[in-house]
Nucleic acid binder design. Sequence first.
DNA 1: GATAGTTTCATACAACTGTTTGAATTGCAA
DNA 2: TTGCAATTCAAACAGTTGTATGAAACTATC
Lengths: 223, 223
Amino acid sequence: MASDHTRSAILAAAERLYADRGFGDVTLRDIVADANVNLAAVNYHFGSKDELIAELFVTRSIATNRERLRELKAAEEQGGGRAPIEVILHALVGPTLRGCLGPENQRSTAARFMIRASIESVPPIRRIKNREIDHLRKFVSAMRRSLPDRSDVEIYWGLNFALAMAHHTIRESERLTKLSEGKCDLDDVEDVIARVVSVATMALTAGKAETRPPARALARDTR
Amino acid sequence: MASDHTRSAILAAAERLYADRGFGDVTLRDIVADANVNLAAVNYHFGSKDELIAELFVTRSIATNRERLRELKAAEEQGGGRAPIEVILHALVGPTLRGCLGPENQRSTAARFMIRASIESVPPIRRIKNREIDHLRKFVSAMRRSLPDRSDVEIYWGLNFALAMAHHTIRESERLTKLSEGKCDLDDVEDVIARVVSVATMALTAGKAETRPPARALARDTR
DNA sequence: GATAGTTTCATACAACTGTTTGAATTGCAA
DNA sequence: TTGCAATTCAAACAGTTGTATGAAACTATC
């Protein structure tokens, strides 16, 4: 076991620096300086720079995925194996958005790191993201059960658009704030989630006779 | 004037290499080797590597933006200064999607380059994208005219979601194809555009009394 | 307190990067 | 042809990068 101290000091420093300045601008020397450890410590504890980045991303990633599946499982159990589509979508995009957005002043290092990872997409992170497909298939299955009369193509497109809105909103949150001159409040995470879920639900249920009134209205804003 | 030959050989080689292997893996030496010119030629003709990348991206970018505005202007003129929201959204996402998607075997270098630029987001490109806000404001204005009873917040969110679906579909086209096992046909660009426009339109008109029947149905698939 | 295993450290390595330089070459006008 | 500018070229530059090394320091066990 030994004194994990150096190891976690590196992880903390790396996460902070990557979050603040991005992957392109931060070298191993920056990290070890910030962590007050020796240069060789990174390769000793992690093997390589890429493995350090991978570990950072995987840690946060599996936390998000676990939360996603937890919400999904809870919803399906409550619904007797078939959850409403809104709740499934909520389980899909909720944890991601909650993990990245929120009041900027109190935004965690982890959150800012994940935003960076979403924007810059460096090789070790891309590799991990590519393994996410199996995870998504679980949501495809749940969506199929929820909407048995929708075709697979529509399910896939609905999933794609849901993830699109969530990730793009995270990635371009700064630009959206600037474009809207602050009118779009990205600190109200639950509102953002509700908006994404609402639109994705419409995408998946449009044209159906059994279009129940949307659980949450899209409009919840002022003026 | 002189013999533009070297200059355009560099541009062509750079675009091709970046498209194939991404920005991270291509060095100036790779480019000049591929273009059969001297290493110093890049700095002589473009000033720096970043300016070369910027020129590549700007060229394609203004082409897309011009096409967007052309479509928008045509639509508004035909509607007497007020275009239907579907047509505005079509003008917004159509050129981008058409410029990046399409039959893979005959996909142009330019298209593949723009996909890369959408995925990797290197500094010189990010700088240019940040200047895109003024361009987007023109669409905000058109959308306001088209939907005078919608609040600004909803307009901004609708625009955000429309761009989200378009860009994410481009960026993750490979993954969507794999996830859907080919069932989502990303080569049928006009179908993709119709889907994005349809969902974005729903997002912007949901809850309105005057919800006219959607111009294009979302469903157009088999099985 | 000697020993074995782990961890830290300073330092060097090797390779690669974009950029610059100054001389050679070319193209064109007078 | 001469002269001048634009262009090309080989070579070197200056800096950075992640990684490897081997000795030193530490830690815990017996």
